[in-house]
Deep mutational scan, measured.
Amino acid sequence: MGSVRTNRYSIVSSEEDGMKLATMAVANGFGNGKSKVHTRQQCRSRFVKKDGHCNVQFINVGEKGQRYLADIFTTCVDIRWRWMLVIFCLAFVLSWLFFGCVFWLIALLHGDLDTDYKDDDDKSKVSKACVSEVNSFTAAFLFSIETQTTIGYGFRCVTDECPIAVFMVVFQSIVGCIIDAFIIGAVMAKMAKPKKRNETLVFSHNAVIAMRDGKLCLMWRVGNLRKSHLVEAHVRAQLLKSRITSEGEYIPLDQIDINVGFDSGIDRIFLVSPITIVHEIDEDSPLYDLSKQDIDNADFEIVVILEGMVEATAMTTQCRSSYLANEILWGHRYEPVLFEEKHYYKVDYSRFHKTYEVPNTPLCSARDLAEKKYILSNANSFCYENEVALTSKEEEEDSENGVPESTSTDSPPGIDLHNQASVPLEPRPLRRESEIGSRR
Rank of each mutant, 00 (worst) to 15 (best):
G2S: 11
G2Q: 07
G2Y: 06
S3D: 13
S3N: 06
V4M: 04
R5P: 14
T6C: 06
T6P: 13
T6D: 14
Y9G: 15
S10N: 08
I11A: 12
V12I: 03
S13H: 06
S14V: 13
E16Q: 08
D17M: 05
D17L: 04
G18K: 04
M19R: 07
K20T: 07
K20A: 12
T23S: 14
T23L: 01
A25V: 05
N28L: 04
N28H: 10
N28P: 14
N28W: 02
F30P: 15
F30V: 15
N32R: 10
G33N: 12
K34H: 11
K34L: 13
S35Y: 04
K36P: 13
T39M: 08
Q41T: 12
Q41P: 10
Q42H: 04
C43E: 15
S45P: 08
F47P: 00
V48K: 01
V48M: 08
K49Y: 04
K50V: 02
D51Y: 03
G52Q: 02
H53F: 08
C54E: 15
N55Y: 02
N55Q: 13
Q57A: 11
Q57G: 14
Q57T: 09
F58M: 15
F58D: 15
G62R: 04
G65K: 14
G65T: 12
Y68T: 10
L69S: 12
L69M: 13
A70I: 03
A70L: 05
D71L: 05
T74V: 07
C76I: 15
R80E: 05
R80L: 05
W81E: 03
M84L: 09
L85W: 06
I87Y: 14
F88Y: 08
A91Y: 15
A91T: 03
A91W: 15
F92T: 11
F92S: 08
V93S: 05
S95N: 07
W96Y: 02
L97F: 03
F98S: 04
G100A: 09
G100Y: 01
C101M: 14
V102K: 00
F103E: 00
W104T: 11
W104V: 10
W104R: 00
L105G: 11
I106V: 05
I106W: 02
A107R: 00
L108Q: 13
L109A: 15
H110K: 01
G111P: 01
G111N: 12
D112C: 01
D112N: 06
D114A: 15
D114T: 14
T115W: 04
T115P: 03
K118Y: 04
D119F: 11
D119E: 01
K128N: 08
K128S: 10
A129K: 07
A129N: 07
A129R: 05
A129F: 12
C130S: 02
S132H: 04
E133Q: 14
E133Y: 07
V134T: 03
T138Y: 03
T138R: 02
A139I: 00
A139E: 07
A139G: 15
A139D: 15
F141H: 01
F141K: 00
F141E: 01
L142G: 03
L142K: 03
L142H: 01
S144V: 02
E146S: 03
E146M: 04
E146T: 03
T147C: 01
Q148T: 02
Q148D: 01
T149M: 05
T149G: 09
I151P: 06
G152Q: 00
G154S: 04
F155V: 09
F155C: 04
R156M: 02
R156I: 02
C157W: 04
C157H: 12
V158D: 01
V158N: 02
E161W: 06
C162D: 01
P163A: 14
P163Y: 06
I164C: 05
A165V: 03
V166Q: 05
F171T: 04
F171Y: 04
Q172P: 01
Q172F: 01
V175M: 11
C177A: 15
I179Y: 13
D180M: 15
D180N: 04
A181F: 15
A181R: 08
F182I: 05
I183G: 09
I184M: 07
A186S: 09
M188E: 02
M188P: 07
A189C: 15
A189L: 15
K190T: 09
K190A: 08
M191W: 09
A192S: 06
P194C: 03
P194G: 12
K196N: 15
E199H: 13
E199W: 08
L201R: 01
V202S: 08
V202R: 12
S204T: 08
H205R: 13
N206F: 06
A207W: 00
A210M: 08
A210K: 01
M211N: 02
M211I: 06
D213C: 13
D213L: 08
K215C: 13
C217R: 08
L218I: 04
L218M: 12
L218R: 00
W220Q: 03
N224I: 07
S228H: 10
H229S: 11
L230D: 05
L230E: 04
E232I: 10
E232Y: 12
A233C: 08
A233H: 13
A233G: 14
V235S: 05
A237G: 07
A237K: 00
L239I: 14
S242D: 13
S242P: 11
R243G: 10
I244W: 10
I244C: 11
I244M: 11
I244G: 14
S246L: 09
E247P: 12
E249L: 10
E249I: 07
P252C: 14
L253P: 15
D254A: 12
Q255H: 04
Q255P: 10
I256M: 10
D257K: 06
V260Y: 01
F262L: 12
D263T: 06
D263P: 06
D263F: 04
I266T: 08
D267V: 03
R268F: 06
I269A: 09
L271G: 04
S273F: 08
S273N: 07
P274F: 05
I275K: 06
I275F: 11
T276A: 08
T276E: 12
I277G: 01
V278E: 02
V278S: 07
E280S: 09
D282M: 09
D282N: 14
E283R: 14
D284F: 09
S285D: 01
P286H: 01
P286N: 00
P286V: 02
L287C: 01
D289V: 06
D289F: 04
S291W: 01
D294V: 02
D296S: 05
D296F: 06
D296V: 09
A298P: 01
A298S: 10
D299A: 07
F300S: 02
I302T: 02
V304Y: 05
V304T: 09
I305A: 08
I305Y: 11
I305T: 08
I305L: 12
L306Q: 00
L306A: 10
V310Y: 09
V310H: 11
E311D: 05
A312K: 07
T313D: 13
M315E: 12
T316E: 15
T317E: 13
C319E: 11
S321I: 12
S321W: 11
S322D: 02
Y323R: 01
N326Q: 08
E327K: 00
E327D: 10
I328A: 00
I328G: 00
L329V: 12
W330D: 00
H332R: 05
Y334L: 03
Y334Q: 00
P336D: 15
P336C: 10
L338M: 12
F339T: 15
E340A: 05
E341Q: 12
E341C: 05
K342N: 09
Y344Q: 12
Y345E: 03
D348L: 01
Y349T: 13
S350Q: 12
R351G: 15
R351W: 12
F352T: 00
K354C: 09
Y356C: 15
E357R: 04
N360M: 12
T361I: 03
P362G: 01
P362N: 00
L363A: 13
C364A: 03
C364K: 02
C364Q: 07
S365P: 01
R367G: 00
R367V: 02
D368V: 10
L369S: 03
A370I: 09
K372R: 12
K372D: 13
Y374F: 13
I375C: 14
N378S: 12
A379L: 09
N380M: 06
F382S: 08
F382R: 02
N386V: 07
E387V: 01
E387G: 02
E387W: 00
A389K: 13
T391F: 11
S392H: 13
E394I: 07
E396M: 07
E397R: 10
E397D: 09
V403T: 07
P404D: 12
S406F: 06
S406E: 15
T407W: 09
S408H: 11
S408R: 10
S408Y: 07
D410M: 11
I415K: 11
D416A: 06
D416V: 06
L417H: 04
H418W: 05
V423F: 05
L425E: 13
L425T: 14
R428H: 13
L430A: 11
E433I: 07
S434P: 13
I436W: 13
